[in-house]
Amino acid sequence: MDWVITTADVRDAGEVMTVQRAAYVSEAQLYDNPHFSALREPIEEIREAIAAGEVLVAKAGTRIVGAVRGTRQGEECHVGRLVVAPDMRGRGIGAALLRAVEARNRPEVRRFVLFTGDRSVANIRLYLKAGYLETDRRVVAETLSLVYLAKPSE
């Protein structure tokens, strides 16, 4: 493992935004939709999430190579914006970030919830392997259905 996971610092916001946008380009291409909110999220919102303590990052040296958010809402933790730099995929960073956000929010939450697009096969595979189960599918646009998944906190 050539990377470590840590809590993001507000000074990391620009690099988190860069990794997030780079990671979502492939999703935008997959769905032929360049309007994903992750590609347009203002840096101020990223700073707010970091300041709230919701963002974890994976760092290889000083470079941020991945990030994830865990937002508590009542007894649930909403996992989102799980991203890995395209050149660092396939090294277990996404799975490690997912485990880290879960560990950080236990035992305060009852379950973890997240969603991804129905064509995002690699994402769905990662979540199923991590113990998430599909709870719903919703058509949100002509070219996009969202797959909702959940996992008990254990």
Rank of each mutant, 00 (worst) to 15 (best):
E76Q: 08
R47V: 11
P107S: 12
V57K: 08
D136W: 03
L133E: 14
A13I: 06
A141C: 08
I46R: 08
G14M: 01
A49T: 10
L97W: 09
T71F: 07
R69F: 09
W3S: 07
C77Q: 08
T6F: 05
I46W: 07
V113I: 13
E102V: 01
D118G: 01
Q20N: 14
R138D: 11
L30C: 00
T62Y: 03
R137L: 02
A8S: 13
G117L: 01
V68I: 15
E54P: 04
V57E: 15
T7Y: 08
E27H: 14
I50H: 09
L144K: 07
E142P: 12
L98G: 15
L97K: 10
G94E: 10
R63T: 13
G66P: 10
A122P: 09
V68Q: 06
I124Q: 11
A13Y: 01
P86F: 03
A130D: 04
P42H: 07
M88K: 04
V84G: 11
Y24D: 05
R91W: 08
T6Q: 15
A8E: 07
P86W: 04
R21T: 13
M88T: 06
G131S: 01
V79F: 04
F115V: 01
V4M: 13
E134F: 00
I46F: 08
V68C: 12
H35M: 03
P34T: 00
A67Q: 06
V4A: 12
Y132N: 00
I50A: 03
R137H: 07
F115Y: 12
R63A: 15
T71R: 12
E75Q: 14
T6R: 15
V68P: 09
P34A: 08
M88H: 11
R99W: 07
A130V: 00
R106F: 03
A95V: 01
A96W: 04
V55C: 11
L30S: 00
E154G: 12
P86D: 14
D12I: 08
S37A: 14
V16D: 10
E27C: 08
